[in-house]
């Protein structure tokens, strides 16, 4: 038995040595500038909306809606996946990435129908984010309530 364990361990070392690693510095730089650019566009949109006399909360909400819309459009136009391939977390973390994670399965599963396809599969990727995001915000809210 231990012989097999030893073989597995030895093999896992061989695999580790031969498997190419992604370039962390280059990937981080790409994520930084693309993610930063998306945030800068968001800020620009907020500023423009504010210049029309909306207050900060209203402008933030409208910006979110516009960015989600842009994420959806770019996904539908087959552009967001290429952006994501280049920028990684830079396009996943902003809200446009959230939109992409909902729309891409919706497109993929359209053939399975609107109920068990689009409706059921839409949240396969974003679902866990929503569940644990909600739980985390409740936890933070409780901590905030007692220690403010």
């Amino acid at each position: 038995m231990s012989q097999i364990q030893d073989m597995k361990k030895e093999y896992s070392k061989m695999v580790e040595e031969l498997s190419p690693k992604s370039n962390l510095l280059r990937d981080s730089a790409r994520a930084f500038w693309v993610g930063g650019l998306i945030c800068a566009i968001g800020q620009l949109i907020t500023n423009i909306i504010k210049s029309f006399g909306y207050n900060h909360d209203e402008a933030s909400m409208l910006t979110t809606i516009i960015l989600v819309f842009l994420g959806i459009i770019l996904t539908g136009l087959d552009i967001y996946d290429s952006l994501g391939k280049y920028a990684g977390a830079g396009t996943v973390v902003p809200i446009t990435g959230f939109a992409n994670s909902i729309v891409s399965p919706a497109i993929e599963y359209k053939k399975e129908g609107y109920v068990f396809g689009v409706g059921a599969k839409m949240f396969t990727i974003a679902g866990p984010v929503l569940v644990y995001g909600t739980i985390a915000s409740v936890a933070v809210g409780i901590v905030h309530y007692f220690f403010k």
Partner: peptide, 17 residues
């Protein structure tokens, strides 16, 4: 891809392996 991995339009990076 649909069965084993992610939707085609999802913006992910494939590992080099």
């Amino acid at each position: 891809e649909k069965q084993f991995r992610f939707p085609l339009e999802l913006g992910t990076q494939r590992p080099l392996t």
